[in-house]
Design a protein around this nucleic acid. Structure first.
Length: 483
RNA sequence: CGGGGAGUAGCGCAGCCCGGUUAGCGCACCACGCUUGGGACGUGGGGGCCGCUGGUUCAAAUCCAGUCUCCCCGACCA
């Protein structure tokens, strides 16, 4: 049919995901109007449709933060250089990526100001003013803000010079409580990313070489993109007492001695939107899981010119009926054909399309077309609301299930470096190995596989031999090439 | 930061090598007509600092230099 050619032409605007993954990704971001390039190198504009995704992510995450006892606050964008320098590892880790302000108005500044690459320094300096007694602990503060890191290579959402994130910064009376906090917040991310964003993860502790500059331990959640590359999607750090000591945060304990509190920090960024696009999208464009889709349901009236009024008033009636319960858009524009709208909303990732035409009205039904590819369904009008709830839940679940299957298919195990390289070449993704936790073994593995260690799952109880030196160990670690 | 490529209407591109009428095509846009269950069709119409700056020339989208931005492939990083 002629439609095949037309479809091909349409699809041509988006390269194939399989064959041109990078170009596919860029095209989807631009065409779905999630973001656009800004005139400043490495910076992007998050367009309304993309920003709505971020707002939905924010509201879901923010609720989880509040439910775990945290409050929001806001700290300055500018950080005096001397503050940044107080924690030696910290400044060393970030210095190549810091942007500086050296002039204000017409005058040179006496001390240059960093544009925050992260806020540990400025926040800890305030905490030292606020914390005096064990009764002031814990401090559980989060902030939503922008961050600037001078990047050499940038990609929309995945790595931009300026990005949006959330950073939690907490202080605790005892070490065990900080340990618990860091892991608790890691689990908040896991819950959010898997259940709301439908992106399956592996997660655990980072090895020494990969941890945050200035942390005792870093934990991360790692997603795997369809091209087999890992993408760090969120981190949680146990900061020990390093920052407390560097910023002289002390409290008087109930035994009347001064002590340093134990800190954590944790964050996730707009990069997650990149992971979302890559994980779920297909050759037709974006696919969004219902829980974070700006439009969950689009209603398309099928108009012929004769019964248009009936159809339009029916769709309007349906819209009014469901708009309180779902994020819904009634596409009653007359200037586009139904087919055009179908392609448009599929490209923009809307999870469920409802079609209503004259025939449907006679049969007192509507047509459901879910974006997860599970096929058209004819739904009786009186079962509409119940059916929408069910199908959105089922789409959410299907998306996570199929993404999880994709992840599991890309996890290999290897006992030797040769086996590692063979499996990675055959099936790019995570390679799970045993590791003795020694630096030389890690260096050798990185060097010979051109991959990086991602994280070590916690509570693994199995034993095996280090992939490099053969020493008996309980530590399992995942390796992959990474974004 | 290296190595390749691109920038011409909202989008996708041709023209450039070999300088010379009014810069062209498809889609989109506007008007009218005809259509409509997967990006309809016809006729007519509107829309351009040819990325930017400078140079060469009687004449530059086209040649030269610089510069900005983006894309792709590698090294470093949420």
């Amino acid at each position: 049919m002629a439609n095949n050619e037309k479809d091909k032409e349409f699809v041509k605007e988006i390269p194939s995901k399989k064959n041109n993954f990078s170009e596919w990704y860029t095209a989807v971001v631009l065409k779905a109007e999630l973001a656009d390039y800004a005139p400043v190198r490495g910076c992007m504009v998050i367009r309304p449709y993309g920003y709505k995704v971020w707002e939905l992510m924010q509201s879901l995450l923010d609720k989880k933060f509040k439910d775990t006892g945290h409050e929001n606050a806001y700290f300055p964008l500018f950080i005096p250089e001397s503050f940044l320098k107080k924690e030696a590892e910290h400044v060393k880790g970030f210095s190549p990526q810091v942007a500086w302000v050296t002039r204000g108005g017409d005058e040179d500044l006496t001390e240059r100001l960093a544009i925050r690459p992260t806020s540990e320094a400025i926040i800890c300096s305030m905490y030292s003013k606020w914390v005096k007694s064990y009764r002031d602990l814990p401090v559980l503060i989060n902030q939503w803000c922008n961050i600037v890191r001078w990047e050499k290579t940038t990609r929309l959402f995945l790595r931009t010079t300026e990005f949006l994130w959330q950073e939690g910064h907490t202080l605790h009376r005892i070490q065990a409580e900080a340990d618990e906090e860091a892991i608790k917040m890691l689990n908040v991310y896991v819950d959010f990313v898997e259940n709301d964003m439908a992106i399956p993860l592996i997660y655990g502790r980072k090895p020494e070489s990969e941890k945050f500059p200035g942390a005792l331990h870093t934990y991360s959640i790692e997603a795997l993109m369809p091209d087999g590359q890992a993408l760090q999607a969120g981190t949680s750090h146990n900061l020990g007492q390093f920052f407390s000591k560097a910023f002289d945060i002390k409290y008087l304990d109930d035994d009347n001695t001064e002590k340093y509190p134990w800190g954590t920090s944790w964050g996730c960024t707009t990069r997650l939107i990149g992971a979302l696009i890559m994980t779920h999208g297909d050759d037709k464009g974006l696919r969004l899981p219902p829980r974070i889709a700006p439009i969950q349901v689009v209603i398309v009236p099928i108009l012929f010119g004769k019964d248009d009024e009936k159809v339009l008033s029916k769709t309007k009636q349906i819209y009014e009926l469901i708009k309180k319960d779902y994020r819904v858009y009634l596409d009653d524009r007359l200037e586009y054909t139904p087919g055009w709208k179908f392609n448009e909303w599929e490209m923009r990732g809307v999870p469920l399309r409802i079609e209503v035409g004259p025939k449907d009205i006679l049969k007192e039904q509507v047509v459901f077309v879910p974006r997860d590819g599970s096929g058209k369904k004819f739904i009786k009008e009186n079962e509409l609301k119940k059916s929408i709830t069910e199908i959105l839940e089922s789409i959410q679940k299907n998306m996570l299930d199929s993404a999880r299957q994709g992840l599991l298919n890309k996890i290999s195990e290897a006992g030797t470096i040769d086996e590692f390289n063979k499996k990675l070449a055959e099936n790019p993704g995570f390679v799970k190995v045993y590791w003795c936790e020694s630096q030389p073994c890690e260096n050798e593995l990185i060097d010979k596989t051109k991959t990086t260690p991602r994280c070590m799952p916690m509570n693994s109880k199995s034993r095996g031999k280090c992939i490099v030196c053969g020493k008996e160990t309980e530590t399992v670690i995942y390796y992959a090439r990474a974004y």
